[in-house]
């Protein structure tokens, strides 16, 4: 699991749901949608510290910098290690807020021509991001 400490910078609530912005490094925000509101859980307050969690398997990798795609979280990273398995591939990526591990198919890794030291976009849909106070 990828886990990064951050600080809540914005909360948008509608009904029982909230979209929460968490700054994990200077100018870098991760966004999560949760079935909680500031009324249901005490930790949802601007300025509060939370951990942002997402699974390795939920990470999408793109070699293109700008992509028209409905994935809200996009962070730049550099591939520091690749382990290609028979079906799946494990990438270690360096970002401004720490090391991210991504597990994608070996098929995609080959198709994209991923190599070490390559600069890529790391993307995660907002409904895959868990907050842990």
């Amino acid at each position: 699991m990828n886990s990064f400490p951050g600080q809540i910078t914005d909360i948008e609530t509608y009904g029982d749901m909230s979209i929460v912005h968490v700054e994990v490094a200077n100018q870098i925000e991760l966004i999560s949608i949760v079935l909680d509101t500031p009324q249901t859980v005490p930790y949802l307050i601007k300025g509060n510290r939370v951990n942002v969690l997402f699974k390795e398997m939920e990470v999408t990798i793109s070699t293109q910098n700008e992509l028209d795609i409905s994935i809200e979280n996009r962070i730049s990273g550099i591939i520091t290690n690749i382990e290609i398995g028979a079906l799946m591939c494990r990438l270690t990526l360096e970002t401004n807020f720490g090391e991210v591990v991504a597990i994608i198919s070996s098929m995609s890794a080959k198709h994209l021509g991923l190599t070490e030291n390559m600069k890529v976009k790391i993307m995660v849909k907002l409904n895959e991001v868990i907050l842990a106070p």
């Binding site: 999560s32 949760v34 079935l35 909680d36 859980v41 969690l53 868990i130 907050l131 842990a132 106070p133």
Partner: peptide, 14 residues
């Protein structure tokens, strides 16, 4: 409470 005690409520995961 049991779930608070073991941190089971301490994530937004439902």
């Amino acid at each position: 409470t049991a779930s608070d005690f073991f941190g089971l409520t301490k994530t937004s995961a439902k």
